[in-house]
Amino acid sequence: MTDLVPPPFSSGKSLMERVEDALLPLINLVFLLLMFFIVAGQLADDPLPELPATTQTREQRPPDADLTVDAGGNWRIAGETLDEESLLSTLPAPNELHPLRIAAAQTITMADLETLFRVLEKGGHTDILLLTEPGE
């Protein structure tokens, strides 16, 4: 029957000692990389530059929408608040190639949107794009 552990090499070290010797350079390398990233992270004190798509720039530019629904559920076109009758007459004619773009406030309820969608459906607007902003 043969032994499960091979006999030691000419150096006289056992298998476990040889494995430990082989792992030592790897452990040293990982330690040096860790130290490098710690030092490099402390050297860069400058804050990251502000990205162009932050909330400050989004708030300054109004959305490119045909219709805006504010937080109170009011329907606005070009800043003018409209009711159901004036809304349909002010909106552009329904067009299959260019769907109606609606920008709704984040706090608006689904019930308010459903009311608006029913009015728009009466006016022939079946293709609608609901513009949203990413959450923070």
Rank of each mutant, 00 (worst) to 15 (best):
E50Q: 13
G73E: 00
M35V: 15
D70I: 01
E59N: 11
T81C: 03
R101M: 10
T81E: 09
L129Y: 11
I128V: 14
A104E: 00
P25D: 08
L29N: 08
D70C: 03
G41V: 08
W75N: 01
E133N: 12
L120E: 01
D83S: 09
T132D: 05
V119I: 13
L4D: 09
R18G: 00
F117G: 00
K13T: 02
K13H: 11
R18F: 00
E59L: 15
A104N: 01
L131W: 01
G72S: 11
I108E: 00
L48V: 13
E20L: 14
F9W: 12
E80T: 15
G79P: 06
V5F: 08
A103D: 05
L67R: 00
G73P: 01
L34V: 12
A93W: 01
A40M: 11
L100S: 03
T115I: 05
A71Q: 07
E17Q: 15
E121H: 11
E96V: 13
N28V: 12
A65I: 04
T54W: 10
R76P: 01
L88G: 03
F31L: 14
A104S: 06
L4G: 04
D83K: 04
S11Y: 03
E136T: 09
L113V: 00
N28I: 12
R76L: 15
V19R: 12
A103C: 05
S89F: 03
Q42E: 14
D64Q: 11
S11N: 15
Q60A: 15
M16N: 07
V119D: 02
G135M: 12
I27L: 12
